[in-house]
Simulated scan of single mutants.
Amino acid sequence: MEQYGSFKATKRYFDDTNFPYGFKQSGDFTRVQAETLELCGATLYALEQNKQEPLNEEQQRFIAVCRGEIPAETDIEKAWVTYREALIRKGKTFNLFTSYVAGDDDDFDSSDDDLDD
């Protein structure tokens, strides 16, 4: 799926603590947003938390969106903003409850499905 570009991660992203039935079943996201979070969420998290350096202008722009410097415009940016807003509504601190984080050891109890695309 080319539309994800440099944001596509090597592993799927799940937040089993806050969305135990998955992003698609939560009612908080569209089908496209849920798919975007699963495929790109690990990269998006790493960028927002400064665990990964931006590789290009697109990723640098995403970081600016996370900092509130500019509004979300792309579908990826909007999906992440929706995710963050859903966590705020649930009263959660997202970096304490994330199931998989890009670059961390694979000691999480979530689906570590490798993406075969």
Rank of each mutant, 00 (worst) to 15 (best):
P54K: 15
L55T: 10
A79Q: 10
R12C: 00
L47F: 10
L37T: 10
I70M: 05
T74A: 04
F29S: 02
D15Q: 11
D112W: 14
L47H: 12
T74R: 07
N95C: 06
Q52L: 15
E58L: 12
T98M: 08
L87S: 02
D15K: 00
L87N: 08
G103T: 06
T30M: 07
S110V: 06
L44P: 12
A79M: 08
Y4W: 06
A34Q: 01
T36W: 10
I70H: 05
Y4N: 05
E73G: 15
E2G: 06
S111D: 11
T43K: 09
A102Y: 04
F108S: 15
P20H: 08
F23L: 08
F14W: 00
S99G: 15
T10E: 08
V101E: 07
I63E: 12
A9E: 01
F97M: 05
E85M: 14
T30S: 14
F94E: 04
L55N: 11
Y21N: 13
R67W: 01
L44W: 05
V65A: 10
Q60K: 14
R31Y: 02
V81T: 14
D15M: 09
E38R: 14
S26G: 02
K8E: 11
T98P: 03
L39N: 05
L39S: 04
K90E: 05
T30W: 00
E53N: 15
D75F: 12
D116F: 07
S99M: 05
D112S: 11
D114T: 10
T36G: 05
Y45D: 01
T98E: 12
A42G: 13
E85I: 13
G91E: 10
V81C: 14
R89F: 10
Q33E: 15
P71H: 13
R31F: 03
F19E: 07
G41V: 03
F62V: 08
Y45Q: 03
D28F: 15
A42D: 08
E58W: 08
D75A: 13
G91I: 12
Q3S: 03
A9G: 09
D116C: 03
G41L: 08
T30L: 03
L47D: 11
Q3G: 04
Q52N: 05
K90R: 15
R61A: 13
K78N: 14
F108L: 01
E2D: 03
A46H: 09
C66N: 07
S111V: 09
F94W: 11
D107A: 01
D109W: 09
T93P: 00
D114E: 11
N56R: 12
D114F: 08
G22A: 04
S110W: 06
S6A: 01
Y21S: 09
L87Q: 00
E85C: 09
E77N: 10
K11I: 03
S111F: 09
Y13Q: 00
A34S: 06
Y13E: 05
G5R: 11
G22D: 00
D112C: 10
R89I: 07
S6I: 00
C66Y: 03
D75P: 08
S110A: 10
D105C: 02
D114K: 08
D28R: 11
L55R: 15
L96E: 11
